[in-house]
């Protein structure tokens, strides 16, 4: 598991554990998504291996569907998607163990009343002892600097605290890849910066969907979706420039 103490939360990178940093191999093979008879993502072939990937596009462009397909929440209507070799349609549980997902509204991600109980919930299938579970919860909360909130009620947490709690709730299971849907949406400037720093400090592979262009400006690769199709794919500056043309 983790070392014992991580006093300064967000900036410290930590020792890699068994799951993390083993590389990333996401493949879309003519994968298509439909919703109520409508095609929301046209057949897409793509492979992703970069450590930090940004996904941008207008509302309704298909970017959230794309992200949900990576962790198997949306399964392709045609074609296939694999994550580190696991097919999202066949091995949903294994794919979800590889790829954690943070939703737009962190409020809906915390599902039990007390924070530490909620974090522990993700470990239930692991058959850990009570002490091991407590240690893992404590470690992940310390990692994000919110160990002091362990006994607090979820509805008492501020927006920034909730976003960090949502991160902790997902990362406690040590996924390889972290997918975040609009992580800075609805946050004030202070909490937005906190979340940005946190994302930069993460060791995991991250895929961030965002309207917040400065968040992805130094990522390794950025994808632009438009009307259900991949409209641009490359280094941030070029793709962001293309996005400005589309939005204009």
């Amino acid at each position: 598991m983790f070392g014992s103490e991580f006093p300064s939360p967000v900036f410290r990178s930590i020792e890699r554990s068994r799951h993390r940093g083993t590389g990333l191999d996401i493949r879309f093979e003519q994968a298509e998504a439909r919703f109520e008879g409508r095609t929301v993502l046209h057949p897409l072939t793509l492979s992703l291996g970069e450590r930090r990937i940004g996904v941008i596009g207008l509302n309704g462009s298909g970017k959230t569907t794309f992200a949900r397909m990576i962790n198997g929440l949306v399964v392709p209507a045609a074609g296939r998607v694999t994550v580190n070799g696991f097919d999202t349609a066949k091995d949903g549980d294994k794919v979800r163990a590889e790829a954690g997902f943070i939703f737009q509204n962190p409020q809906n991600q915390i599902i039990l009343p007390i924070l530490k109980e909620d974090i522990a919930l993700g470990l239930k299938g692991r058959k850990l002892s009570k002490q091991e579970t407590e240690a893992a919860v404590e470690a992940v909360l310390s990692r994000f600097g919110i160990a002091h909130l362990a006994d607090r009620r979820a509805h008492e947490l501020s927006g920034g605290e909730l976003q960090l709690a949502a991160l902790a709730s997902v990362l406690v299971t040590e996924p390889n890849i972290l997918i975040m849907d609009e992580p800075t949406n609805q946050l004030d400037l202070k909490n937005r910066d906190l979340v940005e720093r946190t994302i930069r400090g993460l060791d995991e592979n991250v895929i961030v969907i965002s309207h917040d262009l400065s968040l992805v400006a130094d990522f390794d690769r950025v994808l632009l979706f438009h009307e259900g199709r991949l409209a641009a794919d490359g280094v941030p500056q070029e793709v962001i420039a293309r996005y400005r043309e589309i939005a204009a």
Binding site: R68, N71, L73, G92, D93, R96, A97, G100, F101, F103, Q104, N105, Q107, N108, Q109, I111, L121, G122, K124, G125, S169, V170, T173
Partner: peptide, 18 residues
């Protein structure tokens, strides 16, 4: 309206093993 996202979060975290 929040049900979809909460349910997705439960499934995404593998809390109710399929």
């Amino acid at each position: 309206r929040n049900a979809d996202e909460i349910a997705a979060a439960i499934d995404a975290r593998g809390i109710r093993a399929q």
